[in-house]
Amino acid sequence: MELEKLLQTIKSLLPKINVTNENISKASVGWHLEHSLLIINGSLKGLTMTNPQDYKPKFSIKKFVFLNFGMIPRGKIRAPKQFIPQEAPTKESIEKLLKLAKERLVNTQNLPAKSFITHPFLGDFDKKTTLRFLGLHTNHHLKIIDDILKK
């Protein structure tokens, strides 16, 4: 599963959490890792909290472009407060979120296909689309981290 590989990549970046490059991002590598894990954990938990019968997919051009081309403009979208790290990320805080993400990912395997989350800008994502979204979003932040580390 793609998300499992991305979680391994996040783990491999733990030694670099304090690296910054203001020309690329105001945030550190650790901030991007923790933000990604907060999104992953929140979304995977969200899948378990919705009633699949309430799933209402709607077409949107933004959703189509994002899911098919993975385009997220840098620095243009503000994350909801609950997905913004509140303190400077530590190796321990990231490891704790990483462990939780792995557990939650395993727990989603038996959820119905129509389990869903509601994205604040793009609407409802069923389970498969949620996992695709999480992969695209995490990759977006890993690309920013790559650029930060290119100093």
Rank of each mutant, 00 (worst) to 15 (best):
K58M: 10
Q8D: 15
D54Q: 15
I39F: 05
K16S: 01
Y55T: 02
N18R: 09
W31V: 04
I40G: 01
K56Q: 06
K56P: 00
T50M: 08
S36A: 15
L37E: 14
G30E: 03
T20L: 09
L38A: 04
H35M: 11
L13V: 02
P52T: 09
L47S: 09
I61E: 08
T50R: 11
N23K: 13
P52S: 12
L13K: 15
S43K: 03
S25D: 11
E22Y: 02
S25L: 07
I10F: 05
T48D: 06
I24D: 07
L38C: 09
N21H: 14
V19P: 00
W31Y: 12
E4A: 08
G46W: 11
N41L: 09
P52G: 07
S43Q: 04
E22C: 01
L6M: 14
A27E: 08
S25R: 10
Y55R: 09
S36K: 14
I39S: 03
P15A: 06
I39M: 05
T20I: 13
E4Y: 12
I24R: 13
W31F: 11
K26M: 04
L3T: 02
Q53I: 00
S28V: 04
Q53N: 03
L44W: 08
I39Q: 05
I61T: 12
L14S: 08
I40P: 10
K45R: 12
I40R: 01
L3C: 01
F59P: 10
W31A: 06
I61M: 15
N18A: 04
T9Q: 15
H32T: 04
S28R: 10
V29D: 03
I39A: 11
T9I: 14
L6P: 02
L13D: 03
I61P: 09
F59H: 08
L6H: 13
K11H: 15
P52R: 07
